[in-house]
Amino acid sequence: MSRDVRTDINLKEPRWDQGAFMGRAKHFFMVTDPRNVLLSSEALDEARTILENYKHGKVRPGLTEDELWRAKYIYDSAFHPDTGEKMLLVGRMSAQVPMNMTITGCMLTFYRTTPAVIFWQWANQSFNAIVNYTNRSGDAPLTVGQLGTAYASATTGAVVTALGLKSLTKHLPSLIARFVPFAAVAAANCINIPLMRQRELKFGIPVTDINGNRLGESPKAAQQAIFQVVVSRIGMAIPAMAIPPVIMNALEKRAFLKRFPLLSAPIQVGLVGLSLVFATPLCCALFPQKSSMKVSHLEPELQTLIQAHDPGIDVVYFNKGL
């Protein structure tokens, strides 16, 4: 049973242990909860007020710990962590499931014609660009040029991959052709994310000690962070883009869908949505949000700087991004 809230809760950290996969999974199930998209502006502002009052020692009578944590996750789902500004609705992490299920479901349904391939790959990369811009780091903001380059490169890469593989699968079983959208999305992620975070690869990302004290910037930490994000993003796509094609390939051979072919798209979108509800938070949880790296693996000059600051530091920490 919930009890009155304590006054010493650290709201800068997630509610659950991030050193364990299950703790990270619980955290990301809350972060990506699609129900938060339906919250009104009043509900979002109320959550912000609860958190601001708590930070200043003002606790509403009867407020429980569960309600406080719920307010934190509502706030985190809608407001930028660096600027505090309300984020674009479609770019929020809570919009990932409904947006991706629609776009991915249509990509998997309308994969047979060239115009459909081009349109849905473009739609997917346009959505990715909005997500990456909305969740950009306030410490290293994206320029319009960087955003445009990443958007154009990822879209081109996805379309070229999709059309190239589509031409190669003309004489192969129909099931093989259904996996072309996944290959295109995987290729686009490998292009889009590094380009979107190219400034981090060049100048590095902040690394800290275990207490959060900033020690410097490391491009090698950025490389590890971006690799982990790419793996997570591709992992999210695997269940949503690999399981539904197998099911749909079997269903379309049955009399029901032959009789009602217009139901193919909504069924496929529903299957993708069901997969994404679980795949999105579980794949976000593959790696800790607060990732780590041994000091010995950093750049020599940064190692020297850290050793001069505190010779006892063996490991540094950094935010890997999403």
Rank of each mutant, 00 (worst) to 15 (best):
I9L: 13
K12M: 12
E13M: 13
K26S: 13
T32I: 01
D33F: 15
S40C: 02
D45C: 13
A47T: 01
G62C: 07
D66G: 01
L68Y: 02
W69C: 04
K86S: 03
M87V: 01
M87Y: 00
S94E: 03
S94R: 05
V97C: 09
L108W: 05
F110R: 03
R112T: 10
T113P: 10
Q121R: 11
G138V: 01
A140Y: 07
P141V: 00
P141Y: 10
T143R: 05
T143Q: 06
V144F: 15
G148S: 08
G164C: 11
G164N: 10
S167N: 15
I176K: 12
P181V: 11
F182Y: 05
A187Y: 08
Q198F: 09
R199A: 15
S218D: 08
A225E: 02
V229F: 00
S232D: 04
I234D: 06
A240Y: 06
P244A: 09
N249L: 11
R254S: 08
R254P: 05
F260M: 04
Q268K: 05
G270Q: 11
G270P: 09
V272C: 10
A279I: 13
A279W: 12
T280H: 11
T280L: 02
S292Y: 03
K294A: 14
E301P: 09
T304I: 13
H309Q: 14
D310C: 06
I313G: 04
D314Y: 11
L322S: 03
